[in-house]
Amino acid sequence: MAQKVLDALKANHASAIELTESLFGDEIAWVKRDSLVAVATWLRDEPTMQFDSPVFVTVIDRLDWHPTGVPLSAHWSDESGKPRFEVCYQLRSSTHRYRIRLKVAVPEQDARCASLAGIWSAFDWQEREAFDMYGITFDGHPDMRRIYMYDEFVGYPLRKDYPKEKRQPLVRRDDLPINPIKAPGAPHGDR
């Protein structure tokens, strides 16, 4: 159904669309990073599209992705050209009942993406979450800060190379139980 959207996108933004796919009933358009805002604005404002409902934005970390069945070269010419992150924007048009997913390939060395928070303000906090968990900086976002983790946190916990049990405590007890038998002369025991 949303194939119409893909066709329209390809007709109107041929240079901005890298690739389109249809997977399990979901239509996906890979958009060039620089054209994302233009494509999204067009999707929202074009009367035949009217994507008025931003569903979610998330990131996929393809650090150790080795697809089975499909050769990697179906997307990228070789392993080195494979970008580490994919930023996904899921959009819905309640008027025309379209769904579409915009994907942007983001390399690890230059983890930036354009922000769509100015177009759909619901993406504001979601992009902050994506930044918090994956470290993708969204250019043009009004308030690019961590949203879940504290500012002292180092690293991005949902990246696949973050050790998932590595805690970064803010406080710990300074008075853990000291057994006075083991530590004679200790000034205090357990509190």
Partner: peptide, 15 residues
């Protein structure tokens, strides 16, 4: 919860 965000027990900070 064995992960980066959860404290392994409240006794890490209070008795």
């Amino acid at each position: 919860y064995q992960n980066y965000s959860t404290m392994p027990g409240a006794d890490q900070v209070i008795p």
